[in-house]
Amino acid sequence: MQQISLQASKSQEVSITLNNQACKIKLHQRSTGFYMDLYVNDSPIMQGVICLNCNYMVRYKYLGFSGDLVFVDTKGANDPVWDEIGTRYQLYYLTADEIS
């Protein structure tokens, strides 16, 4: 499991290599929740997926992403909100082996 460093911001973009995959993660706070877009090699894997506590973000192997991403509330069981991203709410990458 690998922690992905994030800042408390309503909107941000992070470029990171995860298991030899060139990833771009975009995060956006909207009135209805905190949302994620994921790109690998500039190709969209998923877009506009709501971030929920301890729920896998990608979920489906056919999308072409090896592993998965998950937000974890380190102080309870709430869904992430922008002002505590990177502190209370941490984003983790899990390899396919760690998910099984």
Rank of each mutant, 00 (worst) to 15 (best):
P44F: 12
I45Y: 06
M46T: 15
M46D: 11
Q47F: 08
Q47E: 14
G48P: 01
G48H: 03
V49W: 04
I50L: 08
I50C: 06
N53P: 04
N53I: 07
C54F: 14
Y56W: 15
M57F: 13
V58F: 04
R59W: 08
R59T: 14
Y60N: 04
Y60H: 08
K61S: 13
K61R: 14
Y62L: 15
Y62K: 15
G64I: 11
G64S: 11
F65D: 10
F65W: 13
S66D: 14
S66C: 09
D68E: 05
D68V: 01
L69F: 06
L69A: 05
L69E: 05
V70D: 06
V72C: 10
D73I: 07
D73N: 08
T74V: 12
K75N: 04
K75S: 03
G76C: 06
G76R: 05
A77M: 09
A77P: 07
A77L: 10
N78M: 14
N78L: 14
N78Y: 11
D79W: 01
V81S: 11
V81H: 11
D83F: 12
D83P: 06
E84D: 09
E84S: 06
G86T: 15
T87H: 11
T87I: 11
R88T: 07
R88I: 03
Q90N: 07
Q90I: 02
L91K: 04
Y92E: 00
